[in-house]
Nucleic acid binder design. Sequence first.
DNA 1: TTAATGTCTTTTATCGTGAAAAAACATTTT
DNA 2: AAAATGTTTTTTCACGATAAAAGACATTAA
Lengths: 300, 300
Amino acid sequence: MSKSNNVYKDAYNRCLRLLDETRSLPSEPELGALLGVSRTTVRSILARMEETGLIAWNKRAKTVLRDPHPDDFFPEEETDTLAEIIERSFMRRLLAGGAEAGMQINELELAREIGVGTTSVREFLIRFSRFGLIEKRRNSHWVLKGFTRAFALELTEIREMFELRSAAAFAALPQDSPVWTDLDRLEDEHRQLVRDIATRFNEFSELDERFHRLIHRASHNRFIVDFYDVIAMIFHYHYQWNKAQERERNEVAVGEHLAYIEALKSRDLGKVDAACRKHLKSARQTLLTSIPENRQPSRA
Amino acid sequence: MSKSNNVYKDAYNRCLRLLDETRSLPSEPELGALLGVSRTTVRSILARMEETGLIAWNKRAKTVLRDPHPDDFFPEEETDTLAEIIERSFMRRLLAGGAEAGMQINELELAREIGVGTTSVREFLIRFSRFGLIEKRRNSHWVLKGFTRAFALELTEIREMFELRSAAAFAALPQDSPVWTDLDRLEDEHRQLVRDIATRFNEFSELDERFHRLIHRASHNRFIVDFYDVIAMIFHYHYQWNKAQERERNEVAVGEHLAYIEALKSRDLGKVDAACRKHLKSARQTLLTSIPENRQPSRA
DNA sequence: TTAATGTCTTTTATCGTGAAAAAACATTTT
DNA sequence: AAAATGTTTTTTCACGATAAAAGACATTAA
């Protein structure tokens, strides 16, 4: 079992959804581009679709024979990357308590527990280390630094520096820049969300990420843009596990976003700065209140 | 050849240097702490030293019998980590021209060329990716983003943000903080270097790194501290390969450092800001002039 | 003669394996 | 009994091997 075929399975599932829309599928290279996979994978997909009677396939002709049935799909969990599986397991352990700062992380144990090879775990930990939550001891174990108040403060400090700068850069962008239409579109989505906030409040986190990424991109600085990955990761898990007053919090945040968007559109740097600061302050507050500070810092 | 014993060889060499100073070696745990290795490695070292007649070893008694001879040492190149070897090879390729932005990086080819396994190369590339010079295409190759003018500008932009903030934090540190003695010591080293600048100018780069790391540490922010790794890496290779007016450049920089140190000691935020800005500006200039901008950016 | 399909080759992702190094446990010495 | 040494176990590091996926080349259809 040296490599799972999750790329194929995931692409297959997405391809099934395309079947509803058309009577026949496009050329192999086109399908590949559409699904983001190579022709090799496309051909495996087509081969299986032919086998299961979904399509008739003869060279260029790929005619849809029937609508896909629920059990034509591969199970969702088989479409995940190993990296996703490892990340989830790791974060579950990390957030499920008992993960004290200073605790050591054992690659072999993690690998056995998750049921994967050590190499994948090692690679995951190396990638994960840039989030600042773990640290490597040369030739030895990893050390958990813990999801502490200090971490949240350090994270938000950088976030605020970067976002204030990005927001200023955004507001200074020429009127004909395509970002303004992106912003309009996001504003619309925000207004729609406000309207149905009672039922759709949980859609906020995804919108939040897209909004902030748009702003950060205006910095034209890869380090700023990349840093948003750290924020996104933390907020992603934070949203999943801190459900207290979720609706209220999100409603407030959407309001702040709208004010922020107004400020950006005014292109008045003072207003932008104020709106940005206000939103980031409440975002920080939300994050901080969700961290149970049950330990004293070990250094004075 | 599944794992080289470079840890042992490097520690052995360092242990040989200890032999000059004492007539007998300390306990195994103490030696381990001193050399930064485990007792297992210490015991291998002692075993070999006994074998080669350097010491007489009987339980606690580890008497030095003779001074180490040059060829008691393992060759320097056998003491490097695989990661160091790979980094050097990779950077050589990257700086040796012909490394156009957009070029793709092949793990297998790199591994074959350097003569190591693919896993080590993969892990190196993952670690290296945080420097912002390469990027991974999912399920496919890495792409070289190139050591371009844009890269240098993005890097220095962040550096300046971080260092201005750290310097301000530094100046605000209480008088009894140990950093002030560290600063005094560094100031001394700078003064000594100024005196002998004609011959010792090449020692600047190491001093430079220690100085800036001291300042960044005052931020008490892991993201700021960690970012200095990116700067240090770039400047490390930059110093190695841009030798034009090295003496003059370093002389100027030492002077700027001294002014910067004075400003910090004055604890006058205005002066600190000015001195920091001035030095960072010239550091940026130095970096920029060393980048041959022979390509037009591909996007308008 | 361009763009697709068919076929073959190369590279990436992942595992199991084994030596180096660390860590844990047991025993002795002071 | 505290701290060293001696011994055993566990973990990390690095490799080669193999299936999945990508990519390159050859062939055929429009």
